[in-house]
Design a protein around this nucleic acid. Structure first.
Lengths: 141, 141
DNA sequence: CTTTTGATTTAGAATTACTCTAAATCCACG
DNA sequence: CGTGGATTTAGAGTAATTCTAAATCAAAAG
């Protein structure tokens, strides 16, 4: 239902701003928050606004170029790794670690069977104490 | 290390407000948000304030009487079911369903082994399309 | 080259979900 | 009755994110 269907029809373009946001995410091995991405993006492109960072993140996510991770404890974080993977989060220092469990394909199937959902994805996060924090938090009862 | 250790020493009491909040959560089979809990609690106890609902939720959670669920997409929801269980969420209607996967004990161990965390808990959520939405969303490409 | 059209960006206001604060209240005990 | 600690209340404050409206930009059309 378009008036003309122009050639470019590019509802989703890769603009300089989006390129910068993507670059920021790709050049960090941490899982940055929107806030951190905004700060880093400003250094590369001082005029970029907060809203544009969010717009870009939504766009890049939709385009499958970044992944959003959210654990409910605060701000979303953005991940350059877009293939399905799991996470472990330290309950002491909140560190986030990537994880790959081979069992998830079966698990997804099993879960979907039990609740009669058409499976799309599965999110799995281990909560625990990381080696570093275990070292310091060794306090006995 | 207390000054006196009075007899009552009750740092955490079950007050009428907390009772009402608990009652609201227990009497619903849905997973209510704090907002919904506030609204329902007001009907039982019209003077209760928003902050008290949050205080009560924190208290009840700490006391192990309710569980908090958060999928990062918005407000936390509160669950009368406190034993460990998994969830499935419909990507179309956002419905939330409880699930019980027997494999999670092994999975937790396996995940902890891979990242060398001391395991505490595991969160598993299937994302998919529920039977009802599958019925209506049957639209082919 | 200029206009048109629609996407995009910008700055800041608005919204949502929640937490904090300070004053008022409650309650067991002395 | 008074004191002290916990709790409640109303409303202000905060953090994360979205919305809005005006400005900008870029490709296609004239």
């Amino acid at each position: 239902m378009r008036t003309h269907a122009h050639d470019h029809d590019a509802v989703e373009a890769m603009t300089p701003q989006r390129r910068v946001v993507l670059e920021v995410i790709r050049s960090s091995d941490a899982h940055l928050t929107a806030n951190e991405i905004f700060a880093n993006a400003r250094e590369l492109l001082p005029t970029i606004s907060y809203a544009t960072v969010y717009n870009s993140l939504r766009h890049l996510k939709k385009a499958g170029m970044v992944a959003e991770i959210n654990f409910g404890n605060g701000a979303s974080r953005y991940d350059r790794e877009t293939s399905r993977h799991d996470h472990a989060m330290c309950s002491v220092c909140a560190k986030l670690v990537d994880l790959d469990l081979p069992a998830t394909v079966d698990l997804t199937r099993e879960a979907a069977r039990r609740c009669d959902f058409k499976p799309e994805s599965i999110h799995l996060t281990l909560i625990g104490i990381c080696p570093e924090c275990r070292g310091t938090e060794r306090a006995p009862a």
